[in-house]
């Protein structure tokens, strides 16, 4: 299981990438900051960077305080 933002659970599958997690959670907002176990992952690696079962993933949506 992957826990995202200490809130959302995504069932882990072998070969799962960051992009798969975003798709699973329908996180479509364009301005995201993503870290895996505390390491910020550059956007260009989201399609290929694999996550491991139990990883702590943070997906921060970078908008706050007013649209």
């Amino acid at each position: 299981m992957i826990r995202v933002n200490d809130k959302f659970d995504v069932e882990w599958k072998p070969g799962m990438t960051i992009r798969d997690i975003l798709n699973e959670l329908k996180f479509t907002f364009p301005m995201l900051v993503i870290s895996v176990n505390g390491e910020i992952i550059p956007k260009e690696e989201w399609d290929t960077r694999q996550v491991q079962d139990g990883d702590d993933v943070k997906v921060l949506h970078m908008i706050a305080g007013g649209r």
Binding site: N5, K7, F27, L60, H61, A64, G65, R67
Partner: peptide, 16 residues
């Protein structure tokens, strides 16, 4: 009115 505070992502999604 949303121009005072828009905290939905911070609160509901980011859990910040």
């Amino acid at each position: 009115q949303h121009d005072e505070a828009w905290l939905i992502f911070m609160d509901m999604v980011n859990n910040q």
